[in-house]
Design a protein around this nucleic acid. Structure first.
Lengths: 143, 143
DNA sequence: ATGTTCATATTCACCGATAAGCACTTTGTT
DNA sequence: AACAAAGTGCTTATCGGTGAATATGAACAT
């Protein structure tokens, strides 16, 4: 299970350290693609095929569905973690997610998300999430 | 059943002693996450995996669901109690809960809560918590 | 009261993960 | 061929996490 929040920085060539705690769950090779809310998604190989399967079930007759599928598949890249624990983020994805130097990587269960750190902070400070809402959701989920 | 109130202090590296009485119920490994009212929650593994399963079922396409999942999973860390009964609190969680040195740990049935001691005192002394009021609200819940 | 044991606190030393800089290779362009 | 740009790999320094050792203090038994 991918969890936690980590802050790291891109090196001059656009490489990023994969936090040690995420490495084991994600595997040597994994997939990153454009994500929602302005971040990038990263999937382990098994989770990716899982995700692909879901996309395949969408009706091709629906324009919305076609767009959705294109969005995720066109942006996908396979990444490999090098001996020093780093991986390269393709330049088009870097651009898409507005990445400069400071990066936040978060684990979200079945995937990781890679954020421009500023964006992530802002996202968190926004009242996206009120305590009441959280409490309500928690009781709904029975915790 | 996790009960009681304990006061301890963080060491220089951000580690905290888990009160002996909570250890047996919580287990060697447990999960801490961002909690409500500015504290941290700690769950036993069984409580947590239960919760995780439910989070996994939430739809990726729903923004609210994404927000909720991000809040909990990005804020979660697995902790392990060392031979001396201590565990490390990740720095982002320490920051979130405003932890300095003096800490209060309390048992709340299915989970523990970890508080900055000052905050905890204040929270208790505030008029938001009078026993009478609480009692009154309880009757509404049918106790 | 005294000694024994267990829980907690504090300090130090070590090791691994990460940051940063640089050099080399490959590829594509002029 | 020469150069620029992008990608890959190595080396070093630093910092945070981890474990060990010791000190303090409370609870309990004799």
């Amino acid at each position: 299970m991918l969890i936690g929040e980590y802050e790291h920085s891109l090196d001059a060539k656009g490489r990023l350290i994969m936090p040690a705690k995420l490495r084991e769950d994600l595997g040597e090779k994994f997939i990153i693609t454009k994500g929602l809310d302005g971040c990038l998604f990263g999937f382990s190989q098994t989770e990716w095929t899982n995700f692909e399967e879901k996309l395949k079930t969408l009706p091709l007759t629906n324009k919305n569905a076609r767009d959705f599928v294109r969005f995720f598949l066109s942006g996908a890249t396979e990444c490999e973690i090098d001996k020093q624990g780093r991986f390269l983020i393709a330049s088009n994805l870097r651009e898409y997610a507005g990445m400069e130097k400071e990066i936040a990587i978060i684990g979200v269960g079945t995937r990781i998300e890679i954020w421009n750190k500023e964006k992530w902070k802002k996202y968190n400070s926004d009242e996206n999430i009120s305590a009441d809402e959280i409490a309500e959701n928690m009781t709904m989920l029975g915790i």
